[in-house]
């Protein structure tokens, strides 16, 4: 079987978990180092940035909030791409990727919601408004939770990969519909009563730290995703070993 795998394309070769583990061992430290470095630079620049004349120091929440929101959406995109890989090419690492990404995406979404709420208190005078963005993000958070619930309910890796891939894709097709409908709903109920954050164009002194932080968060995502995929592979190996052990005990009697 390994001969067949070796003669096929690079992704089939990567599909061999041992090779993936070896690769991730080499790649992991570099990714983690890059994350720490850019995160440090980004945070330093963020605290060096001038205070906003209206919002004061709270504007710095943006350096966490906005990248977290971007990453929450990127994570779902990564999951959707992996889901296609899992359904079309039955690539086993794609299953692992979907499964590993869901909790990370949920945490980024939660981070975006929490920092948004912290930012909202001084800005809007309330912890939560049913603003179109917050609401659609909340729905996204619910979708992540649903996926995690499905993963927890399914223990057979072969089945769970395809099933969660289908759910991810159904959700992915629905995201634009949900976004559109929430925007419609929002304009219907709260005609521009909340202060828009994205009013003026962003000043370069804020933009640079924001971009550095976005890069840092992206690296953070890939580091976490890599580690989570490693864990998932090892978890499945443990599962197989346990099953084999159970089988052997049955046979020796």
């Amino acid at each position: 079987m390994s001969d067949i795998a070796a003669s096929a394309g690079w992704w089939t070769r990567l599909a061999n978990p041992s090779r993936f583990l070896a690769l991730s061992n080499r790649l992991g430290p570099w990714l983690a180092g890059g994350t720490v470095l850019t995160l440090a630079v980004g945070l330093y620049l963020g605290f060096q940035a001038p205070e906003d004349y209206q919002q004061g120091s709270t504007v710095r929440i943006m350096f966490i909030h906005v990248p977290a929101a971007w990453l929450a959406m990127m994570c779902y995109t990564v999951m959707a791409l992996s889901a296609i890989g899992s359904l079309v090419w039955r690539h086993p690492l794609a299953d692992v990727s979907v499964r590993a990404a869901a909790p990370i995406g949920a945490v980024f979404t939660a981070l975006a919601l929490i920092t948004g709420s912290l930012w909202g208190k001084p800005m809007w005078g309330t912890w939560w408004v049913w603003d179109a963005r917050l609401t659609s993000f909340f729905v996204l958070f619910l979708m992540y939770l649903g996926l995690i619930a499905l993963h927890r309910a399914l223990d057979d890796p072969a089945r769970s990969g395809r099933l969660s891939a289908i759910l991810v894709l159904v959700g992915f097709i629905n995201i634009p519909i949900i976004k559109f409908s929430v925007d419609w709903w929002n304009t219907l109920h709260q005609p521009a009563s909340v202060l828009r954050v994205d009013g003026p164009t962003i000043h370069p002194s804020l933009l640079v730290p924001l971009l550095v932080m976005a890069i840092a968060f992206t690296l953070l995502f890939f580091t976490l995703h890599l580690v989570a995929m490693r864990n998932e592979i090892l978890r499945r190996r443990v599962q197989v070993l346990r099953r084999n052990a159970a089988r052997q005990i049955g046979e020796s009697r």
């Binding site: 729905v139 619910l142 979708m143 939770l145 649903g146 619930a149 499905l150 309910a153 759910l167 159904v170 959700g171 629905n174 519909i177 949900i178 559109f180 409908s181 929430v182 419609w184 709903w185």
Partner: peptide
Amino acid sequence: LLVSVLILPLCVPVLIF
């Protein structure tokens, strides 16, 4: 219960319109 948890977020547009 799981079906409801999975499907409710997707039903938001139906509810809104």
